[in-house]
């Protein structure tokens, strides 16, 4: 150990390249951890009935579920961007009393079971809920509609965007924003011309994560929105339904969902580096 320290002092750049930062046994545990995630996915891929894969995923019910999932996930991601960006800005760039509580509450859907989220939505926007009963008088009926699906998805996905963007905003720092402000730029101009372009990679990765979470939403949707083909039965609900009667179709659809999620995660994983490069 002392020799290593000496060496690294002598020529830090070269040594930092050769220096092995983690002990070897870490690799073993990490490998167990990685296998724990990868093996079940392989187990599922091994179960896919490739000969009938196309007919299974292109059945009327499957296509309806996939289209509904894509449509609702896009809508909920849009909602997350519209309301999540301001939330992240307030959390990262301002100080106000109760900020810690606001952050904790916004992140709550990350740790609360989705079925609990669904119940909470039901007792708020449902027909006899806190707000739902008033909406009912205005002729707005959310229950059993695609709107309910989008709301359930936005509820669980919003923290992903806020968390991701808040991190990017903090990493990017306020240096350029301060300079722009001293040059006379108004706050809205700073936001549009400096802040948002600077954290764009973080915003994209946050949006992608929110989209992925929306796509996989199950518990809150089932509890709050119900399940009807083409209206509220998204891909995860279709998989759960098929699982009993037609396991092959359930596996094929699961594979489809995993493939979409993988593409999304790979896209999102590349971006966290970008904000750091942008930092002065």
């Amino acid at each position: 150990m002392p020799a290593l320290v000496l060496l690294s002092r002598r020529s830090p750049r070269r040594e930092s390249r050769n220096f092995q930062a983690v002990p070897r046994w870490i690799f073993l545990l990490a490998a167990v951890g990685a296998l724990f995630i990868v093996l079940p996915l392989l187990g599922m891929v091994a179960k896919v009935d490739w000969a009938h894969f196309i007919p299974l995923v292109t059945s009327e019910a499957s296509v309806a579920a996939l289209l509904l999932s894509l449509k609702t996930a896009l809508a909920s991601t849009t909602l997350c961007i519209i309301f999540g960006v301001p939330l992240a800005l307030l959390l990262a760039r301002t100080r106000f009393t109760g900020q810690g509580i606001v952050r904790a509450l916004v992140l709550l859907p990350l740790v609360v079971p989705p079925v609990v989220g669904g119940l909470a939505l039901l007792y708020t926007f449902g027909r006899e809920g806190l707000i739902g009963s008033s909406l009912q008088l205005l002729g707005i009926d959310i229950a059993f509609s695609t709107t309910a699906v989008v709301m359930a998805q936005a509820f669980v996905a919003l923290p992903f965007l806020v968390l991701s963007l808040e991190g990017s905003l903090r990493t990017a720092g306020q240096h350029y924003e301060a300079v722009a402000a001293t040059l006379g730029a108004r706050p809205s101009t700073v936001l549009r011309r400096i802040t948002l372009p600077l954290v764009l990679p973080g915003l994209i990765s946050g949006s992608v994560l929110a989209f992925a979470r929306s796509l996989g939403e199950f518990g809150a949707t089932l509890t709050f929105a119900g399940s009807l083909q083409g209206v509220t039965r998204t891909l995860p609900l279709e998989i759960y339904l098929q699982r009993e009667s037609d396991p092959d179709a359930a596996v094929a659809l699961s594979f489809l969902l995993i493939a979409v999620a993988l593409v999304v995660v790979v896209l999102a994983y590349r971006s966290p580096r970008a904000p750091r490069q942008a930092t002065p």
Partner: peptide, 21 residues
Amino acid sequence: QPVSEELSVTSVLGKVTSGEA
């Protein structure tokens, strides 16, 4: 003409007891 086809009978009951259906 159901507004929802639930995945289990308990979900159906839940939608009725909560007043949604």
